[in-house]
C-alpha cells in the first residue's frame, strides 16, 4: 500500500496538471511576456502613425495561419494527454508527433517571414515598431523551439512505453508548457498584426 502510494504520480486536488515547477516557470514566462506586450502597446501609443504604417508591411496571412497551426498543435497535445490517461502510449506518441510537426510548420512559416524582412533590409534598428516586432516574435520563436524539444523528449519516452495511465506527469508537464506557447501567440497575433 505504501509502496503503491510512493510510486503513483501524486496530483493534489485543485492543482493544475503536470509538475508544479513548470507552473512556476509558466507564470514567470507570462509575467515577462506581459511586460513585453504592454511595452509594445504603450510604445505604440506614442508612435501610432509609425506603428500603423509599419504594420501594413507585415504578412497578416502568415500570422493567421500560424495561429491556426499553434491552436491545432495545442489541440493535438490535449488529445495526447487524453490518450495517455487511458494508458494508450502509442496513440499518445502519435498525437505528440503531429503536434511537433505543426510546431515545425510554425517555425518554417516564421522563417519565411523573417527572411522577407531581413532581405528588405529591415532590422532591429530600423524603427521602434520593428524593434518590438522582431524581438517579440524571435523571443516567442525560441520558446516554440524549446517547447518542441520538450514535446520530443516526452514523445520518445511515450513511444518506449515510459508512461502509463497512472504515471504520466511528464506528458502533462510538457503539454502545459506547449499550451503556454500557444496562449502567448494568441495574444501576440492580434496585438502586432491586427490592432491599428
Amino acid at each position: 500500500m505504501s509502496t503503491q502510494s510512493l510510486t503513483l504520480d501524486k496530483h493534489q486536488p485543485g492543482t493544475p496538471p503536470g509538475d508544479m515547477a513548470i507552473w512556476l516557470f509558466i507564470y514567470a514566462e507570462l509575467l515577462a511576456f506581459g511586460v513585453f506586450f504592454l511595452s509594445y502597446a504603450f510604445a505604440r501609443a506614442h508612435n501610432v502613425e509609425l506603428f500603423n504604417e509599419s504594420q501594413q508591411h507585415l504578412n497578416r496571412e502568415s500570422g493567421a495561419i500560424n495561429t491556426v497551426v499553434l491552436i491545432t498543435s495545442s489541440y493535438f497535445v490535449v488529445r495526447a494527454v487524453a490518450a495517455i490517461r487511458e494508458g494508450l502510449s502509442r496513440q499518445c506518441a502519435h498525437w505528440l508527433s503531429a503536434a511537433i510537426g505543426l510546431g515545425g510548420v510554425f517555425l518554417v512559416i516564421k522563417l519565411f517571414e523573417f527572411h522577407a524582412k531581413f532581405s528588405a533590409g529591415i532590422s532591429l534598428s530600423t524603427n521602434t515598431f520593428y524593434m518590438f516586432y522582431l524581438s517579440l516574435t524571435i523571443f516567442h520563436f525560441m520558446h516554440v523551439i524549446l517547447g518542441m524539444v520538450i514535446l520530443a523528449a516526452v514523445m520518445l519516452k511515450a513511444r518506449r512505453g515510459g508512461y502509463t495511465a497512472e504515471h504520466h506527469t511528464g506528458v502533462e508537464t510538457g503539454a502545459s508548457y506547449w499550451h503556454m506557447v500557444d496562449l502567448l501567440w494568441i495574444i501576440l497575433f492580434p496585438l502586432v498584426y491586427v490592432i491599428r
Binding site: S74, V77, A175, H179, D182, L183
Partner: peptide, 11 residues
C-alpha cells in the same frame, strides 16, 4: 480565447 486555452487545454 485565452480563457478557453487556459481552462480547457491547460486544465
Amino acid at each position: 480565447k485565452g480563457e478557453m486555452v487556459a481552462g480547457f487545454f491547460m486544465g
